[in-house]
Design a protein around this nucleic acid. Sequence first.
DNA 1: CGATTTGTTGAGCGATTACTCAAGAAAGAA
DNA 2: TTCTTTCTTGAGTAATCGCTCAACAAATCG
Lengths: 185, 185
Amino acid sequence: MAATRLFWERGYEGTSIGDLTEAMGIRPGSLYAAFKDKKSLFQEVVHSYGRSPVGGFVAVALEEEPTAHGAFARILREAAVIYPDPSHPAGCLTISAATNVAPQDAEIEAFLRNLRNENLATFEARLRVAQQEGELPPSANPRSLAAYFAAVIQGMSQRARDGATAAELTETAELALDAWPGARR
Amino acid sequence: MAATRLFWERGYEGTSIGDLTEAMGIRPGSLYAAFKDKKSLFQEVVHSYGRSPVGGFVAVALEEEPTAHGAFARILREAAVIYPDPSHPAGCLTISAATNVAPQDAEIEAFLRNLRNENLATFEARLRVAQQEGELPPSANPRSLAAYFAAVIQGMSQRARDGATAAELTETAELALDAWPGARR
DNA sequence: CGATTTGTTGAGCGATTACTCAAGAAAGAA
DNA sequence: TTCTTTCTTGAGTAATCGCTCAACAAATCG
């Protein structure tokens, strides 16, 4: 949807109803008939983004990769290529669309924050399973590792918005994987 | 200044002139007499932030620490404590105050982006010196390492705004330092 | 002191914000 | 066809945005 691109690029508050109606080729009345209001439209956009290949690659990797290391390595390497891809706005919509907002939109800020923290919990759960299965040594800390990878991914999204290329972000991904218990290039 | 807290917490567009005049206890006319306009006030705020202990800890560490490893270890560990400090808004003003804006404020977005990319260049320069001095092996890539640490720091700022504690961020910092050539906990 | 400068004030500017609604057009059912 | 339902439209709402200005007060100067 055209709304996705706008919210992705300019964020929630940076995108006006006028921008949206113009891009979608409709009048405000139609927009408010189809979606309740701006908040609801945004939340619908975020959900459809999460179900798309570009926004859902993290969940797909966690599901498809048999090992935790394989999953996180794939997530970081794919993020390095997807985030700076010029076919869409840079970075991740969930990470950057509402990082700082006016008090009246705190609800939207919290909505995305919750999504991010849910992803963090998913990371931790996957690493905990890996530890139970013996892939991760008992000395490893699933919670710490999850928070670390979440921070790296959020940082890579920001760097992509600042102009980092896929090559640069791939090097960042490889360095980040050195933190994996026992890993070394 | 009161304006710093507001911009830090809500971002550039999330802070209105009304918010600023109320917090500063002045009327709009006085604000526009003292600072030219909202953009100029914001830029002045960012500059004073960069000269403060909280906003300038990166430059101080790079200046004071004799080794590059010492400098980056200190930067990460201090960021882990400073970013979630409850005595001020979470995270880094430069990183989060204008990540997504309306087209009319693209100038402000670029202003902060340039600051971030300058910091990245400073990182790379410090690492290049370390390589010339033999602290870093010839196989290391100063540019990649700099981009990696920049991404981690930006990610830590975001995580702090999402509620991460100093303890959690410290663990992230320690994991991040594993990427240092030859390092291992 | 009076004169001049500097700073502050409240009122209000035009533009933009998210959003609404009565009226009309289009589509579907009988 | 006619009736009903669904969707779209242009005009408009009140509120807020960044910003300006003539009038006034405070401070500075000779």
